[in-house]
Design a protein around this nucleic acid. Structure first.
Lengths: 163, 163, 163, 163
DNA sequence: CATGAATGAGTATTCATTCAT
DNA sequence: AATGAATGAATACTCATTCAT
């Protein structure tokens, strides 16, 4: 807390004027960051015309967010993620994000862009899981700069399937 | 450490006869668990005939492992995942697992089960990411019993794609 | 540290606001006490007119300090005296004290109070060693009250020699 | 204790077959060492003809013992010297040693080697204190090799006095 | 007798939280 | 409202001692 206060340029005690505890501080930070991610992702989706464009935008945004908020992601991983409080917020945030993907999938199905027999929930697992795995690898492991990440390929795999 | 010793039914000091520090203990636990997962996953793959069978087995094994080792996964999340030592081991373990998926994909391509123009690395991101996301949701969030998890659907999505 | 804090009437953590470690705390205490002893001894010396008076004053001061700081001396002996840090400070302090005795001896020789052929370094060993041994015995072993300690005798022995 | 056992080439538990506790082990070591010192000092005294020779021999022996048992002296300083048990033994040992000096002084007075009006107790303080201080300085601080320590000078100072 | 694996009391240090200023 | 000195609960680790083999 002392370090955080110093970084914020305020006194240690002042943090407690705004957050009841370290736990609450992290909760707010988590909420804030997930909300920011959710809104950014939504915007990225909406700016795509076709479903392929939308997915491309999502993958781009995913990678950008990881790079821009690398520190937050890392700090978030340091917290005891099992604290009930925090886990609930984390899952709620994820659910909200999944909701956007779900609507996107349904809309695309209505437009005939995606096959009608596709289960929209399973589709979101495929989209979120694949894009997360891809972006984490490229950003954290390969440490590739944003411009050199090719999102088209992974979107193609998701769209066409493996077969 | 006191708690761990009590759970293990041994004295606090005894842990230090076998592990130099708390960090080392977690490192060994992580190594051991990832190795166990890797071996089990490999076996699950190898017992499938077609690529679809293999993926089904992988998804099954994924869910089983999450349920059986829920406590280890939860404890592992409590460690400071940023400790260089631990992160290195974690990434190395993930890489080894990806290696198995990669070989599986290449073999399936050679057999003509998967399309020849598929990038095998991207395919592993899609498989790992999707199955992980699916199993985490069903096990941790939905808390569905093993028998009631339908793996066929998610494998179909991965194989056929969204379009 | 808990005991020290309690004795000081402060919280355990408060000690660490002022001393980085137990080692540092003892270092400061040692420095402080030796400096106090050195200054007091110097003053005792300077207040004597003849060399005999000076030695008498030193012996008095020696005994007083032992009684007044019995606890510090005892606590100091509990530390690992071999810690390089601490030993260096201890030896430096002793050297400073020897310096005062040395100057006193030289001045007395210049005044003709002590024989000219006397080696001043050896004289300090004789003075310091004898007075320490005498005072430790009277204070710690015989546990004699200050008023009943006869310093004249021991000073005479040092001055006249055994022969 | 583990380190001590290893140095002794025996098992950790074996020490406890012979010494009830670490404290007792140190007590025995202290007793043993002081007894050795006492006997050696006695012999050194007895081998001198005149009192001056005796004192010279004592000073020599003092320095030799410090060098030969440097480790024991250092280890002894690490123990909590305040443990009543140990302090009692230490003081008793010192008393025994003082006894030898005392007899030596009285004998020399009887022989007319030392002045008759000399208080024998005070004389022992002067002898022990001076020789200890001198030898500690030469051995521990100056780290001078045995052969280069001039004992004649310090004995002269003790005999002739400062005046 | 000898051993060393097992033990747990003890301790220095950290850090989230409080509260007087 | 803002502060940071004071606090003490919490915890990793040590090491003298025990006891089954």
């Amino acid at each position: 807390m002392e370090y955080i206060a110093k970084e914020a340029g305020i006194g240690k005690g002042t943090i407690y004027e705004y957050f009841a505890s370290k736990e609450r501080l992290f909760e707010e930070m988590l909420k804030f960051s997930m909300e920011e991610f959710r809104l950014g992702l939504k915007e990225a989706m909406d700016q795509g015309k076709t479903i392929t464009d939308k997915l491309l935008n999502c993958s781009h945004y995913n990678a950008e967010f990881l790079i821009d908020h690398m520190d937050i992601v890392q700090i978030a991983m340091q917290i005891n993620l099992l604290s009930e409080e925090l886990r609930v917020h984390f899952l709620a945030g994820q659910e909200a994000i999944r909701g956007h993907y779900d609507l996107m999938v349904k809309a695309a199905q209505a437009q005939g862009e995606l096959r009608a027999d596709l289960d929209d929930e399973l589709a979101t697992f495929c989209i979120m899981g694949t894009l997360d795995e891809f972006c984490k690898q490229r950003v954290f492991v390969d440490q590739r700069p944003l411009a050199e990440i090719d999102h088209q390929g992974i979107v193609d795999v998701v769209m066409k399937g493996l077969k």
